Every structure is written in C-alpha cells, then in structure tokens.
Computed example of a mutant assay.
Amino acid sequence: MQGANSHSDRRLAVLRAIVEDYVSTHEPVGSKALVERHGLGVSPATVRNDMAALEDEGYISQPHTSAGRVPTDKGYRLFVDRLATVRPMTSGEKRAITTFLDGAVDLDDVVHRSVRLLSQLTRQVAVVQYPTLTRSTVRHIELVEVAPTRLLVVLILSTGRVEQRLIETTAPVAVDDLAAMRAWVNAATEGRTIPDAAIGLQHIPASPIAAPVVTTILEALSDERGGQRVAVAGASNLARYGDSFDTAVRPLLEALEEHVVLLTLLGEQAAGDSVTVRIGTEGPVQELAATSVVAAGYGPGADSVAALGVVGPTRMDYSSAMGSVHAVARYLSRILDGN
C-alpha cells in the first residue's frame, strides 16, 4: 500500500473494517456505516478519501448496483497478510476439539470426526485428506493366533492407520514359532518407512510360516488407498452464499464430486504451525476463481503426511477459519503422534 505510514495504517484499518463488515453483513459497505460501526477516529470525508484511494489501488471495488464497496481478491490478500492476530480458540472450543477427537476409535473415525468438526467450527465446506501411506512409518506389527491354522496380522502405521489380514496355514503354528516370527517381523520393520520395511522383510529367516506372513504384510504395506482419499463435510453451509450461487457456489458444488480437484485445492502443505491461504484467482483451478482455501498440513512429529482445510467463497471469515484450521491440524497431529 502506497503513501505515508500514518495514511497506510489508517487505510489498512478502513480496509479491515470493510472486509469485516462485508463478511458479516454480505452487503457492500458505505463510508457512513464504517464511521458508525468502527471507531476510526476520523471524519466521514476522510474515510471517503481513504476508500477512493483503496479503490484506485485495487483493494476494493464498487458493484454497479450499490454505492458501497466490496473487497477485491487483492484486498482480501492484504487483509490476510496483515492480520494482527488469528482468532484464537476459546477454552470451550479447545475442550470441544479435544473431547470430540480423542473419542475416535480408528483412523477412519478420526478423519470423519475432524472434517465434521472443522465444518461446524468454520461454517464452511471442510476437506480432510487421508494420510499418505508412502510417508508413513511402521509403528508395530502384531501376529495373533485366532485358530490352530489361522493367524491374524495387525499392521499399525505412524499415521494411526490399522490394517488387518487373515492367514491360513497348512499346519498348526507352534507358540514358540509364532513368538519368534513376531520378533523378527518387528525387528525388520518397526520405525522404518514403508520402502525400508519392505526391504527388511526380505531378510526374515525361513520358516513354515515366514512366506505367507511376509507376503501378507507386503500386500498390506503396498495398499495405496491413503493419500488420494478425502472426506468432505459442510456442503450445506454453502446455502449462506445464495447470492453468489453462479459465481462461487455452483462450481464448488461440482468440485466436491471430484476428489482430485479437492486434493489440488489443498495443495502441498508443510507441517508445523503454518496455515496457507489462497484467495480467488491465486488458486490452481480456474473454474474456482471465486473460491478461497485455508489449509494446513498435519502428521506425526515434524512430518506432514496429509492436508486439511476449508473451502468457500472469498467472502469468508479468514481470521476464524485460519484459527480453526490451525487448531484442528495441531490436534490431529497430536493424535497421530500418539500423544
């Protein structure tokens, strides 16, 4: 934003007020309303001059049917980049997230609880990508005798994913043989990435049950269902944007049917505390140029094994969305980390 610091600070305050009012009221914002609702400390004439300058610089625009102004993509971008604070979770919201997610029984449950929670917190369409299998490590493999000639293989990955497979053996398995195989399998795989674990399994000593156990575990490790799957919730929230149906809602509803498009929208996310915001035309999908995405990566430790976020028309509450996305990603990472 051009101009002296005092002018820039005041115009940023005016822009912030326009964005907040437009998100709240869904109506173009006029100078009189800004003066009445916000303590800007200047006259209506000064606010009008600031609005004219903001419009000249492309941060706001004037719809033909109104004397008020609305933010442009450039205006939203400046607003997001200059956000002094992302709205923090209240203690009640934090408790709700913890209670809701800690009650999950497996990875599918975690993902579906997370996506429902995120849509409720933000009142947007929420998208949660399943963890990518190839970036997981093996946490533990259990071998359990369920019948004299039947074994259950339980594979537990760092992402919280659990795979179960049954093996039929040609003869009953001795207790000592089963214990030895369990020890060998875990020594070859625990803490290793999927490719390294697969290599380690090739060196397991030969025994009557080695071949079927190794083959079954390799099949489970190579299951590529993760990563390309997403869970979606909150499509009904788009009803709040009826006035933007043709430009924003219809294309987004169509995109919800295409998981590849949703994965493209989420993009590659880094783990940690970073939240990515892509506004309007900044996004990778031309048909969704009236849509914004707030996303973050999640995963155990410092790793990002998948992404989650919210998608909606550019007229969204960015501060709240960024806070919610960050909080849910952090809690989800904690669950996957086993903490």
Rank of each mutant, 00 (worst) to 15 (best):
L262R: 04
P251T: 07
A290I: 02
P284M: 13
I279H: 00
E287Q: 15
R278T: 01
R229L: 13
L221R: 05
A290W: 02
T281N: 13
V249H: 02
P251E: 07
V285H: 13
V230K: 02
G283M: 02
A210E: 11
V249W: 02
S274V: 09
V230D: 00
P284D: 12
E258L: 13
G280H: 01
L218C: 10
E219W: 08
L288Y: 01
G227Y: 01
I279Y: 02
G234Y: 03
S222P: 02
L256Q: 05
S207H: 10
A255E: 00
E258I: 10
H259S: 13
E287M: 15
L218D: 12
T247V: 11
P212Y: 04
L238P: 02
S244T: 07
G226I: 04
H259V: 07
A220M: 14
A210Q: 15
V213C: 08
A211H: 11
E287H: 11
H259Q: 12
L266K: 01
L288I: 03
F245E: 04
R278L: 03
N237D: 09
S236Q: 14
A289Q: 12
L262A: 05
A290Q: 04
A233G: 05
V260R: 12
T215W: 07
A231I: 06
Q228D: 11
A233F: 05
L253Y: 10
A235H: 09
I279K: 00
L218A: 15
V275R: 00
N237K: 07
L265E: 05
Q286P: 06
E254A: 14
V213H: 11
V260I: 10
E287A: 15
E224C: 08
G283Y: 00
V275L: 00
S222N: 14
R250Q: 12
A248K: 01
P212N: 09
V230S: 03
A233M: 07
T215P: 06
V261Q: 11
S236H: 10
P208N: 11
D273M: 09
V213W: 04
L263K: 07
T216H: 08
G280K: 01
S244W: 06
A255K: 02
E254N: 07
V214Y: 11
A235C: 04
P208D: 12
L238F: 08
A289K: 10
A210C: 11
L256P: 03
A220V: 13
T216V: 14
D273T: 12
V285N: 05
I209L: 15
V260E: 14
Y241R: 10
A235I: 09
G272N: 03
